[in-house]
Design a protein around this nucleic acid. Sequence first.
RNA 1: GGCCCCAUCGUCUAGCCUGGCCUAGGACACCAGAUUCUCAUUCUGGCGACAGGGGUUCGAAUCCCCUUGGGGCUACCA
Length: 432
Amino acid sequence: MVRVRFAPSPTGFLHLGSARTALFNWLYAKHTGGTFLLRVEDTDKNRSETRFLEEILHDLKWMGLDWDKDPVFQSERFDIYRKKAEELLEQGRAYREGEAVIFPVPDGRVIEVEDAVHGKISFRTDEIKPQVMIKSDGSPAYNFCCVIDDSEMEITHIIRGDDHLSNTPKQILFYEALEKPLPVFAHIPLMMGADGAKLSKRHGAVSVEEYRREGYLPEALVNYLTLLGWNPKDEREILSVDETIKLFDIRDMSDVQSRFDTAKLRWINSERLKTSSSSDLLPLFTESLREAGYDPGKMSETKLRRIIELYKVRVKTVREFPPLAGSFFSDEYEIEEKGARKYLEPEEMKANIAHFASEIERHETFSAAELEELCRRIAEKENLKPAEIIHPTRMAISGTTRGAGLFDMMEILGKEKVLERMNRASGSGGHV
RNA sequence: GGCCCCAUCGUCUAGCCUGGCCUAGGACACCAGAUUCUCAUUCUGGCGACAGGGGUUCGAAUCCCCUUGGGGCUACCA
């Protein structure tokens, strides 16, 4: 039975790199039908805060990484670590140095690790200094309590970042001293920033929370992170978690470090957006409107869903939606200067808008199909290209030259609003 | 500095273990074209890589060594 764990320290928000490590642990547990556990490494009381822990747990849940039992807290286990240290002391396998307890490392040994992603790696003990087990203040040192916990939690596979590779021989020494069986080690290469340097704030967003707020879907982030170091054996790029779980194996992971590429994440997000239903997207899009200061409250769900349907193919993140579609929700939308100069200022453009508006006014009903027919009929009669009516009209009703098909936009906005805006733009009609 | 990990298009990668099927495949990005009322979508096409040098071999992206480059660790942080 596979048992894996993710061991965050609650000293900050969930870093993308940690999230990726958690993800691979989780995927492996799911693939093997094993158990995914959480251990909170909060031995550093000064830097650990519960708000960080809450945030981390929240982000894991958001990503869909559910754990199997209540987390283990190292801060509650100091007695256990001290007792183990005491035992080693009594056996003469450790010594005191002041209040601290130290583990001496014998010279001349070679420790071989069979890593699940790197293969065979060997270390000489000559390179390893005596290891602190218990610090002078009575708190346990990382490598010591890590081993005690992993063996007590019966962790079978330790899947963690490459940055722990050189901790491994030290930990193996502790496993031996404690007479505990070794787990399988799997060190996954680190994820770097776009420039190859350590992924940090200066590369932009590095916490899961920031990506959530920027409008990425959790399944897109998970999909992207999965692809960084692993791939299904075919050429698929867009994978559901279920498909990934079915295919994933830690042994198939690449041993090469990768760089985080926002462009590809954005692409995957846009793919997921395109294939998501407007009802699934509704809460997210609505929230993004509220955050941007719009009030979608008074709009019917049907209408909202139509708008989402129109725009989900035009945005890469949910956040890009409000600025594009603001004119549906408020009269206070921005008017593109360039577009205005080209389509709203020239007299003939104003005339085209006015002409279209007057035909609309005369027409009984108001649907996208009819509007299009009307527009094309005018164009033909006046010997204009339909575009010469369409572009100025779009500018008039939305303030932008980009966006969904004009007639759909008009239908959603409604006859009254459309005429009001068209008349205002063409300078006729008298509705301010 | 020492120890450890790693090295295929700008990026993610397939191929490497079990040399020949590789004139190195795919995806993102980028560029061009088609479609279209704009934008986006969609569809076509293009650009673009085996870090360098030695070996081994009939034959090397694939195996070995060196160099170079990148990364990690080197705490009584985790």
